[in-house]
Write a protein that binds this DNA or RNA. Sequence first.
DNA 1: ATATCAAGTCAACACCTGTTCACTTAATTT
DNA 2: AAATTAAGTGAACAGGTGTTGACTTGATAT
Lengths: 215, 215
Amino acid sequence: MTKESSSKTRKPKRGQTREALMAAALDLVVKKAPFSSLSLREVTKRAGVVPTAFYRHFPDMSALGLTLLDESFRTLRHMMRQVRQEELPNERMLRGSLEVYFNYVRDNRAHFLFVSKELAGGTPTMRNAIRREIRMFTNELAMDMARFPFLNHVNAEDLQMMAGLVVNNVTALTQEMLELEESDEFDQNQVLVTAEKQLRLIYFGVGMWKSRPDQ
Amino acid sequence: MTKESSSKTRKPKRGQTREALMAAALDLVVKKAPFSSLSLREVTKRAGVVPTAFYRHFPDMSALGLTLLDESFRTLRHMMRQVRQEELPNERMLRGSLEVYFNYVRDNRAHFLFVSKELAGGTPTMRNAIRREIRMFTNELAMDMARFPFLNHVNAEDLQMMAGLVVNNVTALTQEMLELEESDEFDQNQVLVTAEKQLRLIYFGVGMWKSRPDQ
DNA sequence: ATATCAAGTCAACACCTGTTCACTTAATTT
DNA sequence: AAATTAAGTGAACAGGTGTTGACTTGATAT
């Protein structure tokens, strides 16, 4: 027998049920309620499948949730890596980065809504998983900042503090963005403009910052 | 008959059921799940009352939720007024204000958890009500800032932007605080220290800010 | 060609849900 | 003292919930 045939070429004809379940859940999150208050039965119903079929793909709803979470952050991480490629965050590229990010939010509205609602309202497991991902972004941002010459005198703790400030604010603005109608381009742009000013203000503050030497 | 007797002096002996229902709901929010996924029956059960008794006090669960929301913000507004009494937000009083605020959060953990979970995960009505309250705080903060001489050259839109930055960050830190164990005083203090630094950094940035004159 | 096995269906279960109606009880008004 | 009315109870409803087990189907592997 060929090497791959034993475990890889199994592709059942109607094998997209798993994806259908995930899509159905996301759909319901956008149109109905947070994931944590969806029922197994309504998810299967929207996926066009009988309730018991669910168990062929996930042991329970929380497993579906964690899979959705992984999907949400895997693509987000990928995008962030690309943004981080760019050099020297002077004021000019600030706007550019924000545009890339918020366009991404717009294109992945369902995933962000899912995460946003679970961040405070999900199960402890879910909340911790999300907060861990966000903390990772904060750490990466702090590491990026550490490489800039004009931040040489800032200690690690203060870099973390600064990155936290940025991430907190971007998170809040993301949620604000998600509350807007998809068609409301005016207010969406308004959020973007405000975001840019706020980050520039932080940028000014960072420039003035002096870490206490004894820390 | 006396004037008051006709409609005011009705105080039935066991008339604390309404309060018991509200307390039970808050209790469940802390120990179980967000308010929006609580059932009428479990709330009445925890309140030690039969399900049908609920309807003597609220038409449905969402009415209970809005009452809880009102209660949450009424006392919070009261506290904020007192904090706003203080004069001139130089760097010294920053720490003081933060301590007062986070002590208040600690003393009203259930209410803040309730609000925090509904902010993103509640019904549209609930979410809008909460966001309206938060916007009010932002406006009041912007008005306070407008009175400081060194911010005379900053236009109204930018004041709003600055206040938004502060409120966004304090909101995020509040949620971070709520995730900590009530006994974890070390990390609680850590959040407080970080908060103070972040607000000081914003303060520096505000000092450097120049509004564009054409706006 | 036959056997295997993943992935689907169907019926049934015990339980929890919101809401109704008719009834009781006790305090206030008259 | 009698009448009224707010606030409690209890039984019952129609419907939604997660999960079980036995069954079917169709593609892959032998």
